[in-house]
């Protein structure tokens, strides 16, 4: 675990450093710029889906989906980040405690 934490930290830091050390034209190609802007959208959306539905390598609908729905409502109401997280976790914990969803 420690090795992967240090490698990942070094790698993401090197990405930042790279931008200051490389000549500007190398990364300023339009296609690269566009792709880097779109990558976070794809990855974050995929992470939302996977973390909501995956149980190891199976798909499941459980209390996490309800938590995500509550998070959407909170975001639509422009709630701050921490509130979004707390209401999602709390609603999930509640329906589990009530035994309505696994």
């Amino acid at each position: 675990m420690w090795a992967s934490i240090l490698i990942a930290s070094f790698g993401t830091y090197a990405e930042k450093l790279l931008g200051y050390l490389l000549p500007v034209h190398m990364l300023e190609r339009e296609s690269v710029r566009r792709m880097t802007g779109l990558l976070p959208v794809s990855l974050l959306a995929a992470l939302v889906a996977v973390q909501t539905f995956a149980v190891d390598q199976a798909l499941a609908i459980d209390a996490r989906l309800l938590g995500l729905g509550v998070a959407v409502v909170a975001l639509l109401l422009r709630a701050p980040f921490l509130v979004v997280i707390i209401v999602a976790a709390a609603s999930t914990a509640l329906v589990r405690w009530l035994g309505w969803l696994p």
């Binding site: 974050l44 998070a71 959407v72 979004v84 997280i85 999602a88 999930t92």
Partner: peptide, 21 residues
Amino acid sequence: GILGLDAAIPAGFLALLWPRL
């Protein structure tokens, strides 16, 4: 897990994604 922290993870990713959408 009892506090629903597993649901906090996708909610956190969604909150990071939301401004981009």
